[in-house]
């Protein structure tokens, strides 16, 4: 009854009402994430330094007022590089999460609905892909294709969809026997319409919640690859690459490695909070509608 009332309200009131239903974790996480996105967009105006220009007179300076995060072994301002790093890590995490999610969910939902041969093939492929530790698979593919950011994207696009296919398929198996699907079938709708118009909105929730953790793991993945020297190459201000560079100076300049890592943790925590809140919010909506 609350929803039918809510549908008649103007958009602004509806958004306000929606926002008021958000759990605290979702609110805090969204605000943190928005802050990080804005900091990335406005990075050149926020700090007076350039992320690449070296200043060899000012190397390994500890955090101070002029350099809040200190400087690295080339005298570059660490805060500047951390802020510019947002521009690399965030889009990477976003694309590697949501591009595979699209075809993963579609494939999984179709397999779950259709069953039979198509489903069997998909399941065997999933079994094989899942048998490899994710990072190992990525490393092997990068080793075959050669290093470079494009090949990392390609290797993730090849593999990351499997988790979503799994989730969507499992949900679809439950969903396809429910009355509303049977009703849609009785009305003579084709499988395409049933899967995409009727079932998908109910199948996608678990994938949305999972995508938040996946986002975190993918940012960790690119920084981890850079840390191993298989990802983004040194002068680029990528967080993992910065941590790897700072590792050689860990005894005399702890800030070069630890502070970029802190940026990773804050970003990850923001996304986890959103995921936690979304799980609560979507779960609640489901209950309210039953």
């Amino acid at each position: 009854m609350e929803y039918s009332k809510a549908l008649n309200l103007p958009l602004r009131r509806r958004l306000a009402e929606e926002f008021s239903r958000w759990p605290m974790t979702l609110k805090i996480g969204s605000i943190m994430f928005l802050g990080i996105v804005l900091a990335g967009i406005f990075a050149p105006w926020l700090v007076p330094y350039d992320p690449y220009t070296q200043d060899l007179n000012n190397t390994l300076q500890p955090p101070s007022l002029t350099h809040p995060f200190g400087t690295d072994n080339f005298g570059r301002d660490v805060l500047t590089r951390v802020l510019f790093g947002i521009r690399i890590d965030l889009p990477f995490g976003f694309l590697t999460t949501y591009v595979p999610m699209v075809y993963g969910v579609v494939l999984g939902a179709m397999a779950g609905y259709a069953g039979g041969f198509f489903d069997g093939i998909l399941m065997r492929v999933l079994d094989v892909v899942v048998a490899f530790p994710f990072l190992v698979l990525i490393i092997v593919i990068v080793a075959i294709l050669g290093p470079g950011i494009f090949n990392i994207y390609l290797s993730i696009f090849l593999t990351a969809w499997t988790m979503y296919a799994r989730l969507a398929r499992a949900e679809m198996l439950v969903e396809r026997n429910k009355d509303y699907i049977l009703a849609a079938r009785n009305l003579g709708y084709g499988p395409g319409r049933i899967v995409f118009r009727h079932a998908l909105p109910n199948v996608i929730n678990s994938s949305i919640v999972f995508s938040m953790s996946d986002f975190v793991l993918n940012i960790m993945l690119v920084s981890g690859l850079s840390f191993l020297g298989l990802g983004v190459t040194p002068p680029t201000p990528e967080w993992g690459a910065m941590i790897a560079e700072g590792r050689d100076f860990i005894f005399e300049a702890w800030w070069i490695s630890t502070l970029p890592g802190l940026a990773l943790v804050v970003t990850g925590a923001a996304l986890c909070l959103i995921g936690d809140g979304l799980a609560q919010r979507l779960g609640e909506r489901r209950h309210a509608l039953i």
């Binding site: 941590i243 860990i250 490695s257 630890t258 990773l264 943790v265 804050v266 996304l271």
Partner: peptide, 25 residues
Amino acid sequence: RLLGIIGFAMPPFWVGIILMLFFGI
């Protein structure tokens, strides 16, 4: 729960460096 969220968001290679710094050095 909050500790769990922060723990999950910490990349292992970074945690490793912190542990090295603190317990090792």
